[in-house]
Write a protein that binds this DNA or RNA. Sequence first.
RNA 1: GGGCGGUUAGCUCAGCGGUAGAGCACUACGUUGACAUCGUAGUGGCCACUGGUUCGAUCCCAGUACCGCCCACCA
Length: 1013
Amino acid sequence: MAIDKIFDAHSAEARIAAEWERAGAFAAGAHARPGAESFSVVIPPPNVTGSLHIGHALNNTLQDILVRWHRMRGFDTLWQPGQDHAGIATQMVVERELAKSGTNQTRQQLGREKFLEKVWEWKEQSGGTIIGQLKRLGASCDWSRNRFTMDEGFHDAVLRVFVQLYDQGIIYRGKRLVNWDPHFETAISDLEVENREIAGHMWHFKYPLAGGETYEYVERDADGNITLRETRDYISIATTRPETMLGDGAVAVHPDDPRYAPIVGKLCEIPVGPKQHRRLIPIITDDYPDPDFGSGAVKITGAHDFNDYGVAMRNNIPLYALMDGRGRMRQDGLSYADSAEIATRAARGEDVGDVSDINLVPEDLRGLDRFEARRRVVEAITDEGLAVTDEEGFALVEAKPIMQPFGDRSGVVIEPMLTDQWFVDTARIVGPALDAVRDGRTRILPEAHEKVYFHWLENIEPWTISRQLWWGHRIPVWYGLDLSVEGFADDEGDGALDEVEIFRVLLDGLVHRGARHHAGMDFDAVAAQFRDDIAGLPVPLEVARVVEVADRDEAVDRFAAALAEYNLTQDPTLLVYPVWRDPDVLDTWFSSGLWPVGTLGWPDDTPELQKYFPTSVLITGFDIIFFWVARMMMMQLALVGDVPFRTVYVHGLVRDEKGAKMSKSKGNVIDPLVLIDEYGADALRFTLTSMAAMGRDPRIGPKSVEEGRNFGTKLWNAVRFAEMNGVFSAIDAPRPAPRHVVNRWIIGELARATTALDESLAGFRFNEAAQGLYAFTWGRLCDWYVEFAKPLFDGEYAEETRATMRFVIEQTVALLHPIMPFITEEIWALTGNRAQMLAVSDWPQPAPDWIDPEADREISRVIALIEGVRSARAQMGVPAGARLDLIVTEADAAMRAALAANGAVIERLARTNPARDGQMGPGMIAVTAAGASFALPIGALIDVAAETARLSKTREKTEKDATGLRKRLENPKFTANADPEVIGETRDKLAALDEDLARLDAALAQLAGLSAQ
RNA sequence: GGGCGGUUAGCUCAGCGGUAGAGCACUACGUUGACAUCGUAGUGGCCACUGGUUCGAUCCCAGUACCGCCCACCA
């Protein structure tokens, strides 16, 4: 058998991956010892339509290392794979595809059902991509258990959780101010909002007091001295969003602000809108305004600003919505004149009821984009002279950086919007998630992330979980109207309503939960029938207010459509019964939050759930600690009362070689598949692993992957060498017991490397694991052991050397397998008739007696000698090919023994003749080593000056080290305080250095003598 | 405004109480029973700065500077 000169990753990887799969090597429990402890990992599910990027490559490589390591160690191992439906992202992609596809349809034109068909088509078409790519990376997931968050079983679990939390009152519906993405026209959670600093403006405007009233405006400095006193007929307001002035409900000042005390309770005028309908709003007090900021007075737009919302709620100020879902100024509702009239009545304290029909956008601004409206408002106010002016009379506009919220997917400015949404009352489930990390049931590595986790959870806000999207888990809530033709009563509980009135009720949105208790209605019967109609789904029935019904015809159409959608026939005794399902879907992260239990079969009590939950480790990036990790913690604890995982390992973000974040716009994205094509999956994996230092962002470029590729080649060639020397036909000993020191030594080195590797992996120090293996394989095994073995293949140690090398290589290949699975599996197959693939073979288990301290000492002497000779030769310009005599001028017993046992090795590697005793003489250079001095005749001509310089340099360095140690030992405080062991070591070191010095001095003296001759 | 991390050889990074390591790059030389995707030898560092703790600090503590990240409602 001949092994190819280079490992052909490209052809081998696909073949090996297929073999693993055929052998069932990754099946849950493969290679488990009887009664083994389990080890389980759930994959952070990638977007089903996504493709592998470099972050996935890192994330999955690290998981795979742990999984393969445990599997080989005999744990009952499961790596649970799967994909996420990724609501917004996927819907976005499919919509874009739709736009591209000639038909140029929008999803609205297509309709929900058809659109979802398209999404599923897209999923079928592209959904396997990422799985194939993960396989190319070598991910040893149990692919037979692959799950998708939109699969039926998982979907059922998601709905069940919703219902459970709904029943517990943890999930609730409400009209709140939420972050609204005008591009996707959906609510999003706080986490999906990215606050970015942008160059903005702050405008200052005058709100004139009603009826031309005036007051004395007095400003004082810190000492109470009056710095400004003037009579004003206005109150000055600063804003970065002038367009929202249209929806102001009040102006607020701090209760302790003396400047405005005279006008608190009075009305002022919003300086925008048609002159004849200028709207009045009250001046109120609230703790929110900061007297030291701006003018100290704040305009309150409760429907478009989170702070203002709070003020408005506290002070009973109406919330006037100004915009539609696309961020344009509203066009619906009442005329401006009527709206302004009602709003002014409200400002005077009159109760005007529901204000949702009130549209305070002047007709000329209706339908405009919010930014265009802003421009127009500023222009109008400035033209009217109601902008605050500076000393020179120019309108006061401060250019200033402001923080503005953007949608993380859409990139458009987020608008706070008053809408009906579903929320998780996270405050009620956060406690156990905090406790679990505090008491160590789950630990987060690196620990710094625990603080971040705590901080976020301790300040958690309600989680908006409804999305106005189509792709996702549709909220399992059906809105019904428990109306019968006869006997229906409205809220007041009296009087029957006729059909027209019923629709009026609908349109007014007055039907709510309470309606079900009204007389003449067999709600339970309706509900029962409804349940039958949608059998199998856990359904909370709720009678809720009707939203967004514009007119009777639409209502009728909608009912008909809803009935059709659910194949319901109208009961003749009822005008309408449970009609439509909540159109919204759940936040993707709501379903991802169930990933651990959901993939293991919950709510059924499956054997997998028993065995593999809680999972052992979660490996993820820090960017989704809040999105995902924290929510999994909360939800798992709320549902099954246990933590989802014991350890969370948080890795960094892969950056380019310059340290920049990879992004499409920067064009610095590195495609892992390109790297795999060029260098092989093992190379990429090794490189990523060696850079995965805890708490650091790895930087990667093609250059760094070369290192991994070269390492693989090095290993490959060592194996080739072994094979060429008959190593793999040597006896296959479980653990050879060689006599030769070189063989005893390498087994000890292997044992040390194995122990170190186990420790590194146990501590999640992946980089240390990779670097340790690299140092052992290249620096010990290839650089030294293979070289040492060469002369030993002839003679009495040949057989044991072959056996040892076979053993060491097989063990090394096993150790490398978790990081470099393909090349090691290939070597495994090429070098023996194996019963099992390497992936399901035993992990090396060294015993303490593998380490032979005597062999270590001897070999380190040999290595030092060889290095000394090589160094001297190179520095003195001895031709590399020249074979020199090695004259022992002085040697202790240990060195003599080492020389005797390793003669062939030394001669070969130092390129010398057999060592013989003798004296330093002309034409010789000196080499000192621990316990010995040597002379090397390099020919008649010696550059004495160069040799002196060389030795002096060595001497200088040695002297410096010795001086440091000596000074330390001479310090009485050191000897009094330091650890005795340290003192002993220091003494030993100094003694060795002193010996070296003596030898160097002797050599130098001799040199001086020679040059004098 | 809070919080977290970083600052070590030309570059990318390890190390983290006993006085510095790797890979790449660079220089010289290439003899060798696998490997030029290689071998051998070498050059290269007041371990950001200032104090403190300690017998001893690159390592621990405090502060400073710069860089990066996360969180935050100042209109």
